[in-house]
């Protein structure tokens, strides 16, 4: 097995894709947003419960590849308790990491598993889809339309 592929499919990613965390509908969600990748059919629905400016809880459901599922699972684990500004900052650092491979020193260990994605440009969208959905949902005026990678 090429080590290149092992960088993409890290153990933590395979684990979260097989056993996604926070994988359920969220009762009392204050925001629900759908994300689609029309090229491959990946689909994710993210449920967010806000407590003032803070994300009290976030969960998801959907279907997709190992990368998109693990990305959504690890995203929910990392966003709980964050303020909107913190969540947006984390997204920006995450996006930089999966597109360039550059890792912010403060990046959570588990999210670093996605640094290898930058070597697979066709798969960046998979890693980013659930994040885009959340960042859109965190806007002051969340969009009614689903978020698309295109």
């Amino acid at each position: 097995m090429s080590s290149h592929l092992d960088e993409l499919y890290q153990e933590v990613i395979l684990d979260h894709s097989r056993n996604p965390r926070n994988y359920h509908k969220l009762e009392g969600a204050t925001r629900v947003i759908e994300g689609n990748n029309p090229l491959c059919g990946d689909q994710v629905t993210v449920y967010i419960k806000m407590d003032g400016d803070r994300i009290a809880d976030v969960t998801f459901q959907g279907s997709g590849c190992a990368i998109s599922k693990a990305a959504a699972s690890l995203m929910t684990a990392n966003l709980k308790g964050k303020t909107r500004a913190e969540a947006r900052h984390l997204f920006e650092e995450y996006l930089r990491m999966v597109t360039t491979g550059k890792v912010d020193p403060d990046m959570s260990q588990k999210l670093i598993a996605f640094a290898g994605v930058h070597q697979f440009p066709a798969r960046v969208k998979c890693a980013v889809l659930p994040w885009r959905a959340v960042v859109n949902a965190l806007g002051d005026d969340p969009p009614a339309a689903p978020v698309s990678t295109e």
Binding site: L5, L8, Y9, C40, D42, G64, C65, A66, I67, K69, F120, A122, R123, C126
Partner: peptide
């Protein structure tokens, strides 16, 4: 157990 995209990438 293996999504089509993961199959194609590998």
């Amino acid at each position: 157990d293996v999504h089509a995209h993961d199959v194609v990438t590998m």
